[in-house]
Design a protein around this nucleic acid. Sequence first.
DNA 1: CGGCATCCTTAGGGATACTG
DNA 2: CAGTATCCCTAAGGATGCCG
Lengths: 160, 160
Amino acid sequence: METTIRLTGTLDPRDSWTADNDTCTIALSLGVLSTRSTFLLLREAFYGATRFDEFVSRTGLSSPSASARLRELVENGLLQFEPYKDEGQRTRNGYHLTDKGAELLPVLVGLMQWGNRWLSDSGGPAELHHHGCGERVTAELRCAAGHEVDIGELELSPVR
Amino acid sequence: METTIRLTGTLDPRDSWTADNDTCTIALSLGVLSTRSTFLLLREAFYGATRFDEFVSRTGLSSPSASARLRELVENGLLQFEPYKDEGQRTRNGYHLTDKGAELLPVLVGLMQWGNRWLSDSGGPAELHHHGCGERVTAELRCAAGHEVDIGELELSPVR
DNA sequence: CGGCATCCTTAGGGATACTG
DNA sequence: CAGTATCCCTAAGGATGCCG
């Protein structure tokens, strides 16, 4: 059985180990993220939304839909529902990104930059910059040695 | 109006320019990618699938569903349906990634690494390595100056 | 303010059968 | 092999209204 395949090479039927949706972590991730609404709620969490009302108004979702998806996000550990307190205000509950949720940032940024490039005439409404240095930020593929990796230089191989 | 916001800071109501789903390129991208099936088909295109039958059997989708999503992917310009020819075989049509489709690779890799980290006990079934150098490949946020960028160092600002 | 209950419409997607 | 045509079921998600 082939153990290493190049992207995008010729598909070998023996490479079927790459296509098992029960273990493929792309498929598993999509099982958690599932819908557009989920991504929009995550977007707002990154932008700093914490209150139910903020999520509803800023995503444009209906409140039952937002409620259901927020609950799933909490159940799946991407958001945490915890009390917080603005000074002088009464204590309130709010949704906050967990580490698990925050690590989806490269995916969101990847979607943004792809959309900026291919789905917007103007390059999109917003850009990301590195605070301090000020340079533009992108999601890119790098190896541990620091090389930028092009699609043709990618090898997929089984773990272990 | 606030023109720059930090991730993940406090949400300012004036930041509503970030939440317009008609221009937000995250929302627009999700409009194109929409469903789990679409991502699975793209995954297979990256792995080298070209024939309808390969997409069906490897994604586990039903053929009507695969047919509908593949058509959308072609209509949206992520795949191209073009004739190709294996040596000695008759000419056949096949689906191939366009540049537009291929540039979604960071998103797919992002989903894979997130799933490997958070949804798999074993670190996932597969890993990506840099051909030649051999080091592990990840999707990461970098600025044009080459700095790795952490979530707290990200600034979002309007284009133009 | 932060939801839940209800109702409704639509789209996603499987099973099966059929065609060029 | 590469799909299309039906049929059917389920989930997503909006609208409206209510409630602590």
